[in-house]
Design a protein around this nucleic acid. Structure first.
Lengths: 192, 192, 192, 192
DNA sequence: ACTGGCGGGACGTCCCGTTGAT
DNA sequence: ATCAACGGGACGTCCCGCCAGT
């Protein structure tokens, strides 16, 4: 007979992930000691490691949970909302993710495990942009992929500026971005 | 009397900083143990701590040395070259800097010490852009600050994509950026 | 009113002791973690600690139960059977006992508690041997105590060789032992 | 340039092994915590783990060093001296060895590694006994191997009685042993 | 100038036993 | 009666920095 309900377990798991997010975001992976995690989460080692086998798996579960937050995966038509959210969100999750990326870069084994279970959502985003091109909402003189990459790059820039606390007028920036991707924009670079 | 010349000391210092950069970039601050630093630098503890009082001061010296590399400080007219360099450089230095930024966010004392000695080079960049506006090389219907912020954001995006190993066609992206900031661009957002 | 019969409780207690014996024998006291005990016994912490207040008391109960197995306590006339049993038994119980002996050696308080409740069965064995001497089944030119000590030493040797997995032809050894203690044996050491 | 002489290193290593022997003998492998080892050895972790990579390797080195102490390896003609030494030595080394044997029993990988590098000295002992048989110093009606096994068993018995603090008159026991193995002894077991 | 033996602090992990829930 | 969530102590390991030695 289980001691607590399944719902309680799920909620506890979420509590732990939330606290871990704050802690990893603030101190980094190594800096978020188990004692600090205990304090931030509000539970003891006994509890935390009852839900996750060890610190690294907790970190991994967190990264996995937040993977959907990342720029290259945005819902259709929600681009500007996504940008505004990025500019205002707690930048902790990005710190966590960046730390994880560093490990990906230096641990080939981790890399293959990760690539295997985390398919890019790029294709879906691309389809959405191609439709917008057909409907005349986006310029068609460059490949949809270029538009996608540019918009993603914009989001990355917003996220990093947020992390580095660079102040920015996001509305003006969105307007300039719009000028780059709207139908009447025409390249005037050498050769145009 | 020093046993070796001042030049030799300087060179040693540089060697140490170079090795430390690789090591911190690969493993992060906490992960770059003194043992790993010794190995990467090729000198022993005693030597390293003869040039820097401790690991943290070594890290700080490194961040200070590389501060000039950061996007919001670019030489006039070299924007595209800077973007290309960012897209190809070893992203280790950015990892180092990001780790440092996290500490800045969470250590107020460090923050004030840092802000004191690291003046932003934003004003200089802004002047350069205003001149370009007057010469008709950049659009004048938005404040120079908006252009600067947008271009900086672009660089941040390039840097972060580099760190996260997102592949990108930089030339196409630069072309789209140009469309956003060139004189003939006009905002066509709703209401325009 | 107890939910289960007294017989059931006794059986459970025995199950727990049996599993604990295997576990302590295989891993030693410290190595036999509560988790391993749970697994080997097939019950959870709650059940085990319902029968024994803690791990140490469980260990003690086990040692007490198995005390009768030890060489210096053998039934009259069953010497050879005892030797054969020692040579074939699971040596786990000896490991357990040896670990306990080490604690006895180093914990004076434990020592007095133990000595108090575990009377040696040596006198009984001695009487049995004296009778055999009178009946001419054992040599009488040495004290019965010497014969007892020698035979005990033999059993100890068998037990230890079993633990250390030293192969031995027990029947030949018993034959040689017989030659040492039989009536016609006469010492031929230098001077005899 | 090494900081200390080779001789100093060797001596330190011996100091550490000696202290570890006392500590492991008294508390067992698990009970000999690193803190207790530090105290018994008189050096800190930093020092100890500068000579041995970890606790287990320290334990292994100790077992290896003391392997020669074990009963089945005795110098020719020194049997009685060996028995007397066993009866009087600090029994700690035997505790250590017994703990090691338990691990050998339960860790097949360790077992093969150990068997590989620790050849038995049994054959040498056997040759010595065969010579004694030819010279009429030992009975010849049983195989030399049986004599060797019996004498080894005797030593094992002495060792285990020492560990368990069973008092014994060793001289009388040696006399009885002599009667078992001397030339004029003749088996009177059934069939003789 | 440079090395590395060494002290002692702190980490992640695992462990034991309590207790509330079933 | 039995289970498992949980608290908090202690373990082996590794780390940083000091300083004696070359």
């Amino acid at each position: 007979v289980p001691k607590v309900s399944q719902a309680h377990r799920e909620q506890r798991r979420t509590e732990i992930l939330d606290g871990a997010q704050r802690c990893f975001g603030r101190y980094g992976y190594e800096g978020a000691t188990v004692r600090r995690l205990e304090q931030e989460i509000g539970l003891s080692r006994g509890a935390i490691f009852n839900y996750f086998p060890n610190k690294w798996q907790l970190f991994l579960a967190l990264v996995e949970r937040d993977a959907g937050q990342f720029p290259d995966t945005w819902a259709e038509g929600r681009f500007e909302a996504r940008a505004r959210a990025l500019a205002e969100d707690d930048p902790a999750w990005l710190s966590v993710r960046l730390e994880f990326e560093r490990r990906l870069r230096n641990d080939p084994a981790l890399r293959v495990r990760w690539r295997r279970r985390a398919p890019s959502r790029r294709p879906a985003a691309l389809d959405s942009l191609k439709r917008a091109q057909r409907e005349g909402k986006l310029r068609s003189d460059v490949p949809a992929e270029a538009l996608r990459a540019f918009m993603a790059l914009f989001l990355y820039g917003v996220a990093l500026q947020r992390v580095m606390e660079v102040p920015i007028d996001l509305e003006l920036a969105l307007q300039l971005l719009s000028d780059a991707v709207s139908p009447s924009a025409r390249s005037r670079l050498p050769g145009a």
